[in-house]
Design a protein around this nucleic acid. Sequence first.
DNA 1: AATGGGAATGTTACATCATAACATGCCGAC
DNA 2: GTCGGCATGTTATGATGTAACATTCCCATT
Lengths: 158, 158
Amino acid sequence: MPTAFERHDHSACSHAALVRADELAAARGLRLTPVRRRVLEILLERHRALGAYEVLERLSAEGLGKQPPVAYRALDFLVENGLAHRVQRLNAFAACQSDHSDGHAPAFLICRVCQNVEEMDAATLRSALGSQADALGFEVERLTIEALGRCAGCAAEE
Amino acid sequence: MPTAFERHDHSACSHAALVRADELAAARGLRLTPVRRRVLEILLERHRALGAYEVLERLSAEGLGKQPPVAYRALDFLVENGLAHRVQRLNAFAACQSDHSDGHAPAFLICRVCQNVEEMDAATLRSALGSQADALGFEVERLTIEALGRCAGCAAEE
DNA sequence: AATGGGAATGTTACATCATAACATGCCGAC
DNA sequence: GTCGGCATGTTATGATGTAACATTCCCATT
Ligand SMILES: [Zn+2]
Ligand SMILES: [Zn+2]
Ligand SMILES: [Zn+2]
Ligand SMILES: [Zn+2]
């Protein structure tokens, strides 16, 4: 798989993610309603993270809902079911582009120039942090790892 | 040093941090003005992170400023100079309680029950993530590592 | 002492992000 | 057919964050 920062046939990313979403919905009996599916498609258009209000604008233009709760509810649904992630640093949301079907909690690389977001496997980091935390008696439930920086392409251009 | 989650003589934490702040200000010619110093003291009262508006309320009660920019400017100053950290998951700020004098970027353990925030050294994690990112040509500039979970004390009570 | 420049603070007004609460519509189970 | 659960629609408000400009303070220079 190419990274989010490379030029690539993005329709393949997008299509694969939608297929995974449909499979997941079927397997778990989730209701991937028109609004929810459309929000996922919108997020999948790029590797950028979108703010809830950016998503809402798109929905609104398509007659799928004009008020913030519509966007937030769909986004929350996607996040809860692992189809999208919240990027804390940006107060924004990105579709999950990884092929782990379930329960993964990746690290994110965020390019501050092109704004693309790449998911990176964080299993090693998770377990390293987990044992450090264990030593302090702390039980980790959710882990956020986000790196802000510059991707190779943007570094080359500057 | 006790962790933020243990019972301890917190005035020692607080006092030590203020001494470090004064030393840093002297060494780097920073202007630790009344508002800035007071904000640091307020953050240091507990190991909790405070929202900007919580800080502002306190300032306002003391006649040190009634408008959001007052709080945000002081907080930004503290963060830029390593005297406080921003906790992304909480949209909140915590005084730096570590004795690293400079440029450290710790991982945070956030107890969702008692709300205390503990800093943990993240040097190992940083370098591990750094090399994973390097392999993708990504240059990390800022790294956020935040674990949400439950501290030993709160686990014992539940 | 006056002057002037830079940093900090004061203030207004607004931008952006997020959710509570309640009304309405949809659909399948009984 | 109607009841109950879930999704959606709508209103209103809460919470977080910043742009822009006015004012004050301090201190170095004249
Ligand atoms: Zn792609
Ligand atoms: Zn880039
Ligand atoms: Zn303490
Ligand atoms: Zn706790």
